[in-house]
Design a protein around this nucleic acid. Structure first.
Lengths: 151, 151
DNA sequence: CGCGCTCCTGACCAAAGAGGTCAGGAAAGT
DNA sequence: ACTTTCCTGACCTCTTTGGTCAGGAGCGCG
């Protein structure tokens, strides 16, 4: 139930790419802008490339750029590319699990957990993130004062 | 962004305790009812005990029971007891993280993620789970057909 | 062509976590 | 006293996390 450094880095790097106007951005520049270890970042960017989120060119004038417009890439896309499926239980998708006895309805709970994560992650695009204009459902969640307190 | 076996087991065992009418339940019985490795389960129950969710007595007629009524224990309580804080980013709470440059608004996103998880996990009690009557916000999430499809 | 730049890839590494098992000790009941 | 059951720590294997290092492969430019 936690967000890994890799996922956090991936989203931050993708946000920088989303903000870059035209033309490839070097890994080194992304690493500096977001304070991410360069070599680790390049591995992450490679995963994003394999997932079809990012493209790259080598050599002078090379670098990375988004494969699709920034308003067509969601945070869920980026997170899935580096962390795999969201909200798996015991490494299995919740819809495939059968519970017995008094835990029978637990499946619905995990399904609801996944659905609630999706309503946030699949609705925020990189363009939203860079522009600071989150979708209304999401900013409503973040606007509640007790969303900001630890438990 | 996944649910560990430990958290899953913990909730299932707690559901069995919630369903048990009066009197301690043996670890072995819980393990059988939910098909959980006994020795692993006892470690989990110990953590639940340290968190004040469960009580226990040894010896013949011993066993485990809930420290509070089943409608006063949420799934979030149980998950936190065994997995620690929900939705931490890089092992830190989202409200403590400062993002730079184009990722500035990422903090709000992670806050919204945590808030959305809380609306599910903190509102479902063990009594709800055992009774199959989930709170309306939660069952509404689980009722959407595409909540059940993988992505 | 050659050369430098930048991405690409795999190997490696240390520490921690996941998912357990095992052996023994300590309380409770009979 | 003896059985039952919880309690605790040590240990185990395998994977993941969060990196680093070394070298290779493609691209653009003079």
């Amino acid at each position: 139930m936690r967000v890994s450094a890799k996922a956090d880095y991936a989203v931050r790097a993708a946000a920088e790419l989303a903000a870059a106007e035209e033309g490839p951005v070097k890994g080194e520049k992304l690493a500096e802008a977001q304070d991410i270890p360069l070599q680790f970042l390049e591995h992450i960017l490679l995963e994003l490339k394999h997932a079809g989120i990012v493209r790259a060119r080598r050599g002078a004038k090379g670098g990375y750029w988004l494969a699709r417009p920034a308003d067509e890439v969601t945070i869920a896309d980026v997170v899935r590319a580096v962390e795999g499926p969201i909200a798996h239980v015991q490494s299995a998708p919740p819809e495939s699990i059968e519970y017995r006895g008094n835990a029978e309805h637990l499946q619905e709970v995990w399904i609801a957990v996944r659905a609630s994560l999706r309503t946030v992650l699949e609705h925020v695009t990189l363009a939203d993130l860079v522009g600071g204009q989150l979708p209304s459902e999401v900013s409503a969640l973040a606007a509640q004062p007790d969303a900001w307190v630890a438990r």
